[in-house]
Amino acid sequence: MAEKFTFSLDGQEITAEPGQSIMKAADAAGVYIPRLCDTEGLKPQGSCRVCVVKMNGRTVAACTQPARADAIVESETPEIMGYRRDLVRMLFHEGNHLCPICEASGRCELQAMAYRLGITQSTKYPYLQPVRPVDASHPDIVLDTNRCILCGRCIRASRDIDGKNVFEYVGRGVHKKVGVNGDSLADTDVSIDDRAINLETCPVGCIIQKGRGFFTPIGERQFDLAPIGSNGKGRKA
């Protein structure tokens, strides 16, 4: 096996294997780096940018950047935290997020990340207010992409774990969104048992299982109990 090496993350020495991402190495050492599009069990994609860190002075995404021997990596600095706050705010403002009436509230990673980063009130950015039709065609599943943060977790889970390709990106730029393989969800071979539909897959509240709404009382929801990142890894998928 190839030689392990170490690098520094906010002054702490972290051990890594060749090819391992900064994120994976930090996870293994129990050091949490904030993230939204990356989740255990799926190939990293590097799109939300919330995991940005500085490696030897250059901003990189921790989830896709391989660690390097002797690298000096900064994560929880005021500059990086500022970037993360801006990015999370952008995601809030890109979609329609009304947490008090949202089914995912309390187990939503975007909401939890906002709390972690100290974003508690509406921010300086304008709202883009998308108007996208909700797809409730399927007997068991509702897809509401008005809250989508384009993390691609449903896409990767369906393709790489379920072997189905129910979801895929369509459009580009600010018009980019998640499409389904057919006229609507009912038209696809999606099933409630798919990994893509698992409540842990979508970090926000886009993929909803019919007949299972608001099932955990306020106060007992995942992020009521402990803030995101408490287990050193974010949520498992």
Binding site: L91, V174, K176
Partner: peptide, 8 residues
Amino acid sequence: GYCTPCRV
């Protein structure tokens, strides 16, 4: 549209 900062 891949990444948040540029897209939004």
